[in-house]
Amino acid sequence: MERRVSMADVAAVAHVSGQTVSRVVNASPRVDPDTRARVEAAMAQLGYRPHRAARALRTGRTQTIGLLVSTLATVGNSRMLQAVADAAASRGYALTVVTLGAVAEVSAAFERLSEQGVDGVVVLNEATAAAGETPAPAGLRLVVVDAPPDRDARGRAGIVQSDHAAGARTATAHLLGLGHRTVHHLAGPAGSFAAAERERGWREALAAARVEPPPIARGDWTAASGYAVGAGLAADPEVTAVFAANDQTALGAIRAFEEAGRRVPDDISIVGFDDIADAADYRPPLTTVRQDFDRLGELAVAALVAGIEDGEAGFEIVPTALVVRESTARPPA
């Protein structure tokens, strides 16, 4: 019977230690690109294939990570699911998903993921608030996406977040720069870290321009809420510029403005947030703040793997960028 190629065989051909081969096999970020390429070339030359079951017995790890999310109904969460799944697959990890709607509470979600043998968990967006108040089972590493930097979970693995506040400041400054006297904010749901950060950026931009912030109109990330709240904004002739907390909310608001006879951007300018795939196909094409969902997913998985492999914790902020399209213009004369 032909002997199975071992890590030691790969190490000998690549002229590295067995630990380095193990790190490459387990997609650890603590391997420089040249060494990783040399090890991977040796693996290909020898026909080495990791034995998942044996590795799990030896290391106590299953090469499976979990994803905890409040809901997959929002575009942002669905985009993040895809990004995390792609990043996990590229590192040789399987993915198990649990939504809070399927369990009674966060502790039950953690228990379910632990029973399925995951090595660590990525916690998304709205779920981070509940997760931060619930102790994870011993040994379960966490990375939370969009949470305050002082969140307890930071000590257990890491935090990755978009620079929501900077994106909101840029969006608001763009509208003020066009000559609008003020900018109204169609905010996201209370209790959401991302929504709070976008509101903070909006307030900071108005304060920098010495503009008193108008009352907030609050939605729940959906186009339906944007439509409902947008109707009230459309009824006020003083409203000429709106920063919406996400693109779906902006879409609903645009419909409300048009139905009220307020044309975008002739009568009202609007900026969204996220730059979802359809934003460029809105009528008119939507000016928005782009989040790099792929980068967020990549960094979240990388931070989780670092925590699993080496016990490291980290904090990463991903920049956002304003994308100017046709939904913004100077205010009406």
Score class of each variant (00 low, 15 high):
residue 1 M to S: 15
residue 5 V to S: 05
residue 9 D to F: 09
residue 14 A to N: 06
residue 16 V to L: 14
residue 18 G to S: 11
residue 22 S to V: 07
residue 23 R to Q: 14
residue 26 N to M: 11
residue 33 P to N: 13
residue 33 P to M: 11
residue 42 A to S: 09
residue 43 M to F: 09
residue 44 A to H: 06
residue 49 R to C: 10
residue 50 P to R: 07
residue 57 L to D: 05
residue 57 L to I: 01
residue 65 I to E: 00
residue 68 L to R: 02
residue 70 S to V: 12
residue 70 S to M: 13
residue 73 A to V: 12
residue 73 A to K: 09
residue 75 V to N: 08
residue 75 V to T: 12
residue 78 S to G: 14
residue 81 L to W: 12
residue 82 Q to E: 14
residue 85 A to D: 13
residue 87 A to V: 09
residue 92 G to D: 09
residue 93 Y to M: 08
residue 94 A to F: 07
residue 97 V to Y: 05
residue 100 L to N: 02
residue 101 G to I: 04
residue 104 A to T: 13
residue 110 F to G: 02
residue 111 E to A: 15
residue 121 V to D: 03
residue 125 N to D: 11
residue 126 E to H: 07
residue 127 A to F: 04
residue 129 A to H: 10
residue 130 A to W: 05
residue 131 A to H: 05
residue 132 G to R: 00
residue 132 G to K: 00
residue 133 E to M: 15
residue 134 T to R: 09
residue 135 P to H: 08
residue 138 A to M: 11
residue 139 G to W: 05
residue 141 R to S: 11
residue 142 L to D: 00
residue 146 D to K: 01
residue 150 D to P: 06
residue 155 G to Y: 10
residue 158 G to N: 07
residue 158 G to L: 06
residue 160 V to P: 00
residue 162 S to W: 05
residue 163 D to I: 05
residue 176 L to I: 07
residue 180 H to S: 09
residue 186 L to P: 02
residue 187 A to W: 00
residue 187 A to E: 03
residue 187 A to D: 10
residue 188 G to E: 05
residue 189 P to H: 14
residue 193 F to R: 05
residue 201 G to K: 06
residue 204 E to Y: 03
residue 206 L to K: 04
residue 210 R to D: 15
residue 212 E to L: 08
residue 214 P to S: 02
residue 214 P to G: 03
residue 214 P to V: 00
residue 216 I to G: 02
residue 217 A to M: 08
residue 223 A to F: 03
residue 224 A to D: 06
residue 226 G to Y: 01
residue 227 Y to W: 15
residue 228 A to Q: 13
residue 232 G to L: 10
residue 239 V to S: 06
residue 243 F to S: 03
residue 244 A to P: 03
residue 247 D to A: 08
residue 248 Q to W: 06
residue 249 T to K: 00
residue 250 A to G: 09
residue 250 A to S: 04
residue 250 A to I: 01
residue 251 L to H: 12
residue 253 A to T: 01
residue 256 A to I: 03
residue 256 A to V: 06
residue 256 A to H: 02
residue 257 F to H: 02
residue 258 E to S: 10
residue 259 E to V: 07
residue 262 R to V: 08
residue 267 D to F: 10
residue 267 D to S: 10
residue 272 G to F: 03
residue 274 D to F: 03
residue 277 A to V: 10
residue 282 Y to N: 08
residue 285 P to N: 12
residue 286 L to S: 01
residue 291 Q to Y: 13
residue 292 D to E: 13
residue 292 D to A: 12
residue 297 G to M: 04
residue 297 G to L: 04
residue 298 E to I: 04
residue 300 A to W: 01
residue 303 A to R: 10
residue 304 L to D: 01
residue 306 A to W: 00
residue 309 E to A: 12
residue 310 D to Y: 07
residue 313 A to T: 15
residue 314 G to T: 15
residue 315 F to C: 11
residue 317 I to L: 14
residue 325 R to C: 11
residue 326 E to M: 10
residue 330 R to K: 11
residue 333 A to H: 09
residue 333 A to V: 06
